[in-house]
Amino acid sequence: MSLPYKRLFGGQLLAQFVAAAAIASPDKTIRSLHTNFMREGLVDEDVHYEVHHCHRGRSFDTLQVSATQTDRSIAVATVAMHVPDGGPDVQTLDTVPDLPGADDQRQMSLLPWEVRSHDDLDDPASGPPHYEMWMRTPPADDDSAYPSVAAYATDLTVIGTALRALDGYSQGGNGTAFHSAVTSHTMWFHRPLRTDDWLLIRQDSPIIASGRCYGRGDMIARNGDLLASFAQEAVVRIPT
């Protein structure tokens, strides 16, 4: 996918890590993904993915997936795969709000599908570091692609959510008002998911300090089912 971005978007790496793990463990589904980003990825070079099975079991597999460009390691992920078990199915979650109307449609260049939100992360006015957006993608040719798409989508707005606590800064200021880069991203998949129906991404950032920010979020179906959760740390350098 070609994107209007000066470097390789981290969400692309997350999506490919999920896809690579699914190919390497076709008899299991993804349970969790933990990624460390080491270097900026270049947009004009191919990325090579190498998968190593750390553990193979009847119920669980643990994989390490590395991403390199030429001789540069740019990211590495630990992926846990599993065979779902039966048992209790109970969740504790705040009520899911109504889907915003078409007037709240948002254009996000790195999310080439439908997005709606009452809030605008490009607004530099300060506010609570909380953000909710709804998204829906076109149907995929293969249902196995949906977890990759979901992982891709969770990488975009955590930094912008953290910046809402600071007056005069917004997500659109990266590279000018501030410089940021994601250092690590973790995602847990709780239930099977699809992205071709409306999903709510609800996230908050409890801290921005010491040149870093941290945020966490949930991906929730329109019927209220919690499908996945994620957390992210990023470097945020604001010139003084």
Rank of each mutant, 00 (worst) to 15 (best):
T92H: 00
P138F: 00
D122T: 14
D103E: 14
L166A: 04
F189K: 03
A231H: 14
T137M: 11
P128R: 09
V90L: 10
H53T: 13
A140W: 00
E114H: 13
D123L: 05
T195E: 05
P192S: 13
V79N: 03
L14G: 11
I201G: 01
A19C: 04
T35K: 09
T154V: 12
A150V: 10
K28I: 10
T176W: 05
S32W: 06
H118C: 10
C213G: 13
S2G: 09
D89L: 07
M133Q: 10
P26W: 10
V65H: 05
A21Q: 07
D119K: 00
V235T: 14
H179Y: 13
F189G: 03
K28Y: 09
Q16I: 12
G11H: 08
V158C: 09
D123T: 08
T186K: 04
H53A: 15
A75I: 01
L99I: 12
A162H: 01
Y169W: 07
T176H: 13
E40W: 05
P100L: 07
F230D: 03
P26L: 10
R222Y: 07
R222L: 12
L99S: 11
R39Y: 05
P4L: 11
D120F: 06
L156H: 07
C213K: 05
V51Y: 05
A162M: 02
L163I: 06
G86V: 02
A140P: 01
E132K: 08
H130D: 04
E233C: 06
L199S: 05
A140G: 06
F60G: 03
H118V: 13
P26H: 11
P147D: 08
G168V: 01
H179P: 03
A22W: 03
S66F: 04
W198G: 06
H52P: 01
T29I: 15
D143Q: 09
G175R: 12
H53E: 14
G57V: 12
V182Q: 06
T35I: 15
R136Y: 03
P88F: 01
R136P: 02
P97W: 08
F230Y: 14
T161S: 01
D103G: 09
D143Y: 00
E132T: 07
S229W: 08
Y49F: 15
T154S: 11
V90A: 09
M219I: 15
M219Q: 02
T35P: 06
H130E: 09
A21C: 12
K28E: 06
S180N: 08
D142C: 04
Q171N: 14
